[in-house]
Nucleic acid binder design. Structure first.
Lengths: 128, 128, 128, 128
DNA sequence: GTGGTCTAGACCACG
DNA sequence: GTGGTCTAGACCACC
């Protein structure tokens, strides 16, 4: 599980970390219970400020994706169930917006759902 | 087509405007060729600064959603076809992230696709 | 010689008129001494404001491209020799800027000159 | 790399900044990877408003000439390859117009190409 | 420290 | 009356 930062991107670095961890969990690259690198370690090897990495970990913890143990550091949470409805309201809203863009771009519902299915299955099986 | 701003939101106001216009076009509330309110008009009635509205319009124009006629003002572009693949790379990436979140939240592919379908059809037929 | 306006363009309409007349003269579509349409006529058939057409004609006259006669209207000037150096300073400057863009885009001098030659010969022989 | 503004010019200040940066890159005065002055710094030393400088930087970023690193600031992009054809459509059009002006001014194709070659090589080797 | 965003005014080019 | 541009200040997110 190697993080790749894009310092020229408009999405903040702490969010890039958060997003990559989330996708790592979803893809199976990060297994439940697996230990994440130390804040210091990750900061050093990526050239990122420790404050930034800390912010990302705080966010991931708050969202329930990881758990932090004072002794052993951070590890991937097991059996995460975040929202009762299944998806955070913010993500629902983002999904509605993307659907609107797709509709304007001329995609039919079927075509859009194919893209969605592709997005769902794309991150799978990175560990063969 | 009335815009509702959330000044407490963390998404910038100019993006809120942009997003609502996009969703308005997708839902049919804004028809191709229809004129948008003047920058000044929208600014006045919303209590937003002109520059902010201007920024939103510039973005929408740049993305091809609206066109500004030198004589009159801004109007919804007709027959928008933005990306060859159908969806902007940024939106594809956002979709992949949402799919990851859904997967971790325990949604099966079918459940996720139902959410996507709902997002696609949710904004329809505001004008019966 | 038909003018085509782009009301969504960012170049002012009066400049679009001016530019098309200039290109018309260069291509031979407009011959020296040939009469241009009346301000009113051009305004009517194009849906442009008379003030705008007038502004374009004033500019063309000031630059020496056309001559206006109170009786017969405007006509293309004959044997135009504008700048001693050959090109207006403004156009020289624009050319330098374009050359810079070309250089950054990776074009060699030869490639750039091929583009220039193409631009020079492109507008020719519209009247076979 | 010092910028010189002409406040009396009819070309907007933000475009003057943009153009000078482009010419600076082409001439080699600005090397790929080199850091550009901060928005605030440039605004202060030039007596220009921050927002204006910001607009210029946004444009340069959008055109791919510079990149903004979240950590430090703006720097010249390396290995810029913007348009597949080599030159932006807008610049092609401008070039055609200049060629027309040259033709009317009585310049032969060779004379025009000499001007073009001069424009291409004029900004070179400011750093011996 | 940086850029991103927003405000409240103003002037001008354009049509 | 329209958008385009600019100013002088301010707050905030990010690093």
């Amino acid at each position: 599980m190697l993080l790749r930062m894009d310092f020229a991107s408009e999405t903040p670095i702490y969010l890039q970390i958060r997003n990559q961890v989330v996708q790592g969990i979803a893809s199976g690259a990060l297994q439940p219970g697996e230990r994440l690198p130390t804040i210091r370690a990750l900061a050093d090897e990526s050239g990122i400020n420790m404050m930034t990495v800390n912010k990302a970990y705080q966010l991931l913890k708050q969202e329930g994706y990881i758990e932090t143990d004072r002794r052993s550091g951070a590890k991937v949470a097991g059996g995460v169930r975040l929202e009762p409805g299944g998806l955070a309201p913010r993500s629902r809203e983002a999904l509605r917006l993307i659907a609107s863009e797709a509709k304007i771009a001329g995609l039919s519902e079927d075509q859009f759902l194919q893209l969605c299915a592709k997005a769902y299955t794309s991150g799978e099986e990175e560990r063969p």
